[in-house]
């Protein structure tokens, strides 16, 4: 796997973005664009990515971008694909990129539709596990026990939606999970995605210091803890075959998966979690981990 130093030097995010310090999304996006290159058009809804793309008339992003409404990222991508194809332009990578809210919740209909039609584009969901742009409200991607501004007293009482299974049910040509703390793994998966056709779905676990309650300097550590404890599992699915990658593969081989405690304790959003909920969280993580190991035949 490529180390960070071996990745292309060309930058598509210029200095001066408006995201919070330590934003996992902006780290991931930097490597995503390095992999996809300049012949990319990104369509995006309202979310923190809109802020990253800057305020008119300036943008720090050096690829073309088309903003769209909250529920219509995949529809907008479909329109770009259809419009360019109708005009005989076939050498541009079309990307629809949205947050967990714009994907797990409001964008699901358009995404499912586009995927079922096998639209030729890459859909990226960067997942910071809440509606951050509107002030950290709960989404269906918010994990069990997390404080958000709409689960302020009891914390979230339901586990995170297993959206990856939903996307797998669409029999995509390629799908992969990634995390902003593992740029090499992420970069290689996006290169792979770029060279496939049909609908490709990429999940990017993106820690968020502002919404998760940890110091900005800890973003890489938090992402690593998520993977090391199996809360986030790095894998890819091609032709129905699931393969673990990177850190998740080495954890599977070594059997050294950390308990979730350290991950939970490092974040303010889980500070209200009673021990029973922590145990339930751990059980959910273990069940998912076993399920994936079985599928990866490990």
């Amino acid at each position: 796997m490529a180390t960070t130093l071996e990745l292309p030097g060309e930058e598509f995010i210029l200095p001066g973005t408006r995201t919070c310090a330590g934003c996992g999304l902006s780290i991931a996006y930097r490597y995503i664009l390095k992999a996809l290159g300049p012949k990319t058009i990104v369509t995006l809804p309202a979310c923190c990515l809109t802020i990253l793309h800057g305020i008119y008339p300036k943008t720090p992003i050096a690829v073309n971008a088309v903003n769209n409404t909250f529920a219509s990222t995949a529809a907008s991508a479909t329109g770009l694909v259809a419009g360019l194809r109708a005009r005989g332009k076939n050498d541009i990578t079309i990307v629809g990129m949205a947050g967990d809210g714009g994907t797990f919740d409001m964008g699901i209909q358009a995404l499912s539709g586009a995927a079922e039609r096998q639209t030729d584009f890459i859909y990226i969901c960067y997942d910071n596990e809440a509606y951050m742009n509107t002030g950290v409200q709960r989404s269906s991607a918010t994990p069990l026990g997390a404080y958000t501004t709409t689960t302020p007293v009891l914390t979230k009482q339901q586990p995170k939606k297993n959206f990856l299974k939903i996307m797998e049910a669409h029999n995509l040509s390629y799908m992969a999970t990634t995390c902003s703390s593992y740029p090499g793994d992420l970069y290689e998966k996006f290169l792979k995605a770029k060279n496939k056709s049909g609908t490709r779905f990429m999940h990017v676990a993106s820690p968020c210091p502002a919404g998760w309650g940890y110091p900005a300097s800890d973003t890489v550590r938090i992402g690593r803890l998520a993977v090391e404890s199996g809360v986030v599992v790095l894998y890819e699915v091609e032709n129905g075959e699931l393969r673990l990658t990177g850190k998740s593969l080495s954890i599977a081989r070594s059997g050294r998966k950390k308990p979730v405690d350290e991950y939970l304790k490092a974040q303010g959003r889980f500070s209200k979690m009673p021990p029973e909920l922590v145990a339930e969280f751990q059980k959910e993580v273990d069940r998912n981990w076993e399920d994936i190991l079985n599928r990866a035949k490990l």
Partner: peptide, 27 residues
């Protein structure tokens, strides 16, 4: 000679139309 997108809703129909027009097509 046209791309016909059999969308799953009217919200998406107009979403496709908007971006296809931005891509330069008659929609």
């Amino acid at each position: 000679d046209a791309e016909f997108v059999r969308v799953e809703s009217e919200h998406s129909a107009m979403g496709v139309c908007i971006s296809a027009s931005i891509a330069g097509a008659r929609v």
